[in-house]
Design a protein around this nucleic acid. Sequence first.
DNA 1: ACATACTAGTTTGTATTACAGACTTGTTTG
DNA 2: CAAACAAGTCTGTAATACAAACTAGTATGT
Lengths: 105, 105
Amino acid sequence: MTTPSRWQDLDRLIHEPARLMIVTLLYAVEEADFLYLLHETGLTKGNLSTHLSKLEEAGYVRITKTFRGKIPRTLVALTPEGRQAFETYRQRLSRLIHPPAEGET
Amino acid sequence: MTTPSRWQDLDRLIHEPARLMIVTLLYAVEEADFLYLLHETGLTKGNLSTHLSKLEEAGYVRITKTFRGKIPRTLVALTPEGRQAFETYRQRLSRLIHPPAEGET
DNA sequence: ACATACTAGTTTGTATTACAGACTTGTTTG
DNA sequence: CAAACAAGTCTGTAATACAAACTAGTATGT
């Protein structure tokens, strides 16, 4: 096998540490607003915004823009797909870094 | 805390999937030659060589050039540091993707 | 009324870097 | 002498993370 099937590609979108933080946070809290993510991750606004856009394009998060009075409020939540993708990512990674046994085929 | 301590930076050197493959392999087998890694990872020679050099610069692997007859043979092994770094990486990642509980400190 | 600050972004520029492919050197084999 | 293999180095490209600047609308302070 020139392309060993056991190295299924990790989802690069989630693998990136900044987005891994975001997804992990969202997985835990289910819903978060922009400022919460901003403070929790320590990213800059622009950077956070870009990462959220990428996650949204991939269908991993849904971004809902609401208003608190007239002040914009951006809510972010994992979609079922995003949730699934994270779980898959987590499984593969676990299998990768916790090898089941040695000397397999 | 503007920079939450729980997001200790993952070791980018190990985090990169290609190198994660390499390090994982080395962690399992303890010693491997260039061709073995080449076939197992499916990387190109140049790419594998570059990644190995980076791991060597970081002190994570030791590269020993031997000869089988007159044919060069390159052996690669994790150093204790590399072993340690991988374990640390693994721990942090585990803690990241398997959150212990909610309602943290 | 005007300046400042905040929310939530978009755009721009830079610097890194992974990756493939070409090229190199030395050796063995036909 | 040609071809193929081992183990690289070098080069060029394309992607991309990141910070900082800028935008736009609202609220507040004086």
